[in-house]
Amino acid sequence: MQTLELLVSLKIPDVTALTAASSIRRRLGYDEVLKELRRSDYYSLDLNTTDPQVANELAHELAEKTNLFVNPNKHSYEVRFPQDRGGRPTLEDGLWRVEVLVTDAEGAQANDIQQALTQRLGYGEQVAAVRRGILWTLLLAAASAEEARKIAEEITVTTARDQGILANPHFQAWEII
C-alpha cells in the first residue's frame, strides 16, 4: 500500500482564501503577521501497490484523466508523498510556512469519489481509500517555529466569537502537517 497526497488549487485568485485572509488580518488583528494564506483541496489516496513510482504515476493519472479532482481549465495540482512534507513549520524566505489540514471530524472518507473510481471508472481495487479535506498554507512572520505554530493554531480554531476562523472544532478536525 502506498499513500499519496493530491493537492488541488485554483489557478485564478482564490476568493475564499482572500476573504479569510482579509478577515484574519482586519478583524482578528494579524495584519502584521499573516503574510499570505493559500487554500487547496486535499485528497489522501491509498493505492494498492508497493511500488512508489507506480503509485506516483497512478496518482497523476487519477488527477488528470478522471475529471473528479482537477479541472485543468481552472486548477493546478501537486502530488506528493506524506513523508516529503515537513510536518512542522518550515522557514521560507524569512517567513514561517505552516500547513493546516482541516477535515470532517466524523470521518474524512470520500466514499463517493472512491466508488466512482472503483466502480464506474474501472480502477477496481487499485484505489483502497480516498480521504479529503482542506489544506490551508499560512506564511507567517514569527520569531520561531514554536511561535508560528501557536499563531497558526490561534488563527485556525474557532473557540470564541473573536478567535479563529478556519475550523469549528465541534464538527471539524485540524492538524498541522
Binding site: 476573504t19 479569510a20 482578528l28 474557532t158 466569537r161 476562523i165
Partner: peptide, 22 residues
C-alpha cells in the same frame, strides 16, 4: 453571507456590526 466562504456564517461573525449587535 460572504458566499459561505470558509464556513457558513463565520466571516460575518467577525464584522463590527455583529460585535455591536452582540
Amino acid at each position: 453571507s460572504y458566499q459561505d466562504r470558509v464556513r457558513a456564517g463565520v466571516i460575518a461573525t467577525k464584522e463590527p456590526i455583529v460585535t455591536t449587535m452582540f
